[in-house]
Amino acid sequence: MVNPRGAAVVLATYDRWVRAVAQGKKPLTMGQALAGALRAGLLQAGVPVWLNTPLIDLRVDSGRVTGVLVSRGGVPTLLKARYGVVVASGGFEHNDGMRDRYQRQPIGTDWTVGASSNTGDGITAGLAAGAEVALMDDSWWGPVIPLPGEPYFCLAERTLPGSVIVNQQGARFVNEAAPYSDVVHVMYDRNAAAPHIPAWMVIDQNYRNRYLFKDLAPTLPFPDAWYGNGALVKSGTIAGLAARMGVPAGALQSTISRFNGFALTGRDLDFRRGDSAYDHYYTDPAVLPNSCLAPLWLPPFYAFKIVPGDLGTKGGLVTDARARVLSPAGAVIPGLYAAGNASAAVMGHSYTGAGATIGPAMTFGYVAANHIADTR
């Protein structure tokens, strides 16, 4: 039964969206809307925001951080901070040297969807000021399809019914609907024993006919460029698809047949896909008996290359409960605070759900500002 109030809200929201677009405005939703509201708050409070002003280093006097040295218009500029500096500069996902030093291979900057300006400058400056770091080996991982021009963070597509992810032996190895960080942790953990990077996500034409993929409406053909760079292969048979993927045909056929049996019964006996409420976040309630599971049966069949991408790195400066940056000995570095992906994530190696990055970033930014105000 449709909730009339909910339907009215959806229609009103859609109407505002259409009117905004007609006026030449760009509506923002989800995380972008949150960031937009924060930016509007800064404007209302008269807080200046300097764009294209990279950090060079922290200013340290007698062990206390007293300012930052930045490059503004190519000119080194010292900004003095009487009460404290909050490092909230993001992670190091676009720093090849740091990724090579701290993280497992294969890794690189081509698979991340993090902001290109996230090159670890704040973390590096914190290290130079004597800070401790932690969780540098980890990221907010997620399966990524290396499409030409830009990697695509594969979220809903891998959890919708009628898709499976297999390794280079043609075997499933993970619950495809699990939290995205967990999926990549498994890829790395098992890659040493047998190749799991890249992996492949296999779908059929029935899946393609039903669901949006990236920004492509159902039934529309995938772009030729996706095939051209090897991110996507296609065949009228499972055996032909396996040949183009470079995996054993018999193993892939066996995997698909077994998965199809699970789809018919509604129980994934191998990886329990669909057993948890989380698994059903991006699924199809019209598919029964389990909205996470549907058989792959309608040719042609498609396989997307899957690599370990991320939304950003997770490691950074170690802080205490007041967001103050700590030294390796656990001592507070006076005048230095950190929040967001420039700090070691409060989530540790886990991922609790949507908002696990922006939530703590906002919280510890708030904590840092209050502590500065209370102790100045």
Rank of each mutant, 00 (worst) to 15 (best):
R208F: 07
V202F: 06
F213R: 02
P198A: 02
A193G: 06
G236P: 03
N229Q: 08
Y207G: 00
M201G: 04
A242E: 03
D224N: 11
M187S: 05
I238P: 02
N191A: 10
P221M: 00
G228K: 14
Y207H: 15
A231M: 06
L241G: 09
G228C: 01
S235P: 03
R208D: 06
D204Y: 13
D215K: 12
D204A: 11
K234L: 12
Q205N: 13
T237G: 05
A199C: 11
D189M: 07
R244H: 10
G228T: 08
A243W: 06
D189Y: 03
P248F: 07
L212I: 12
P218E: 07
T237A: 02
L216H: 13
W226K: 10
H196L: 04
F222T: 03
V247A: 03
L216M: 13
I197W: 07
R244S: 12
Y227D: 00
T237D: 09
R190W: 12
K214Q: 14
G228P: 04
P218W: 08
H196M: 02
V247D: 02
W226T: 11
I197S: 07
K214E: 10
L212C: 02
K214G: 04
P198H: 01
A231V: 05
R208I: 12
I197E: 07
M245T: 05
F213G: 00
N209T: 04
P198L: 01
F222A: 11
A242S: 08
P198D: 01
A249H: 04
A242N: 06
G246I: 05
M187Q: 13
D204R: 08
F222M: 14
K234E: 14
P195I: 00
P248R: 07
A217Y: 12
Y227L: 14
P218T: 06
A193K: 11
M245G: 05
A249R: 00
I238A: 03
T219V: 13
G240P: 08
M245F: 00
L212M: 13
R210V: 00
P218L: 07
Q205S: 15
A217V: 08
L212W: 15
D224I: 10
A225V: 15
D189Q: 13
R210A: 15
M245W: 00
R210Q: 12
D224H: 09
P221F: 09
T219I: 08
W200Y: 15
I197A: 07
W200D: 04
D215P: 04
Y188K: 01
I238F: 15
A249Q: 09
P195L: 02
A231W: 04
P223W: 11
A243P: 05
D204V: 11
D189F: 09
W200Q: 07
M187N: 01
G240K: 06
R210K: 15
V202W: 04
A242K: 02
I238Q: 09
A243K: 12
A199R: 05
Y211S: 07
Q205I: 02
Y207I: 03
N206F: 10
A193Q: 14
N229M: 03
